[in-house]
Simulated scan of single mutants.
Amino acid sequence: MTIVIPMKAGPDKRLKVAARLIREGKLVAFPTETVYGLGADALNEKAVRRIFEAKGRPADNPLIIHIAEREWLFELAREVPEVALKLGERFWPGPLTLVLPKREEVPDITTGGLDTVAVRMPAHPIALELIRLSGRPVAAPSANISGKPSPTEAGHVVDDFYGRIECIVDGGSTPIGVESTVLDLTGDVPLLLRPGGLPLEEIEKVVGRVEIHPAAKGIEADVAKAPGMKYKHYSPNAQVIVVEGSREAVQKRIDELVQEFRRKGLKVGVMATEEHEADAFFHLGKTAEEVARNIFRALRELDKAGVDVIIAEGIEEKGLGLAVMNRLRKAAGYRVIRVQG
């Protein structure tokens, strides 16, 4: 039996029920400003193991720990450099995850067997209040079956986990729509492991030069130092193809592909910033912020429409566009068509 708790965006006494479940080692899905998370007590090995089992998540794919106060960082990380404090002061609460050397108290299962720990302080008021009320750091990957599109609405979590977890807190649609930005601070220069809800350009204003891991650009990593680096992610049941290039050339190629697939007897869905004739169409919006907010919903809705192929429009890799393209390329299994013109 799964409890679904509907509530507004602020603190609510019903959250005490969800917080008690966290303390008891149960699983609770809740909204953050990025996507919905599937939460458990990060220091409870048995509870964390249930996250991996529920999601079907590989054991070497580390989890991000969510905290409610900056001071909690010192209870999880063995070393906290000045740059981490500077970033925390500027961007927490917010969609930034910091990777630091971990304390022994953090179970290996939570960190995927690594000697580092990934920590963030979410900005969503429901998430913050839930963590505060539980009094526990909360490990919370996205609340979806591993490899499938991330959830940006409680209904997505219901589709994947109803009857399999103890509680779902319904806080409406998540405002950002892509996961947090992950920054590794264990080296001499900050290293971007995963682009996300905080644009790289904003981080560079604070810390200067940031190196970019190949996985952040869409190349699979050998070792997953952060979620989304190593395994197939964000994929619907339908085949996804991403079309990248100049705007006019992309729109033309999308129309051509729709016709090509239809001639083969396939049902085609399109997700783009401009209208296209297809068996199913999802308008992503005009700005990178709108596209980020909509891509996972688009993938899920086009899948529900029963299409065989989803053709997705690529966007410029600036601001949130870097995170959008990271997600789209992974959703497509790197099936990318680049057009000129």
Rank of each mutant, 00 (worst) to 15 (best):
A298R: 04
L96F: 05
P101D: 07
G147T: 02
A305D: 15
I168C: 02
I310F: 08
I165A: 00
T116M: 12
V4R: 10
S246F: 11
N326E: 01
G37M: 10
Q251T: 15
I67L: 08
L87E: 01
L320H: 00
T152I: 15
V250R: 03
Q251L: 14
L198K: 01
A305S: 10
G245T: 08
M7R: 13
E274F: 07
P62E: 15
D184A: 14
E166N: 07
L15D: 01
K232E: 10
K8H: 09
P58Y: 12
G187A: 15
L63D: 02
E53G: 02
G314R: 11
A123V: 14
Q239H: 06
A272K: 10
V178T: 01
K46R: 04
T181Y: 06
G56V: 15
E82W: 03
R90W: 04
I5G: 00
E69N: 12
Y162A: 07
Q239M: 09
E316N: 10
V189I: 11
K8L: 14
P101L: 12
M121F: 11
I337Y: 06
K55S: 05
D60L: 10
V206R: 06
A215K: 00
A54L: 12
M1N: 13
G177H: 14
G88E: 13
R327Y: 04
L183E: 05
D108L: 08
G319N: 07
M229F: 01
I5T: 01
R164S: 04
E277R: 15
E277H: 09
E75K: 12
A29N: 03
E179W: 08
V80Y: 13
G269Q: 10
V336H: 05
F281S: 01
N326W: 00
I203M: 14
R120G: 07
A298K: 01
G88L: 09
K318N: 06
E248I: 09
V117L: 14
I315P: 00
R338A: 11
G208S: 05
E75P: 03
G196W: 06
F30V: 10
V243G: 05
Y162Q: 04
G147Q: 10
R293N: 13
P151Y: 03
P101C: 09
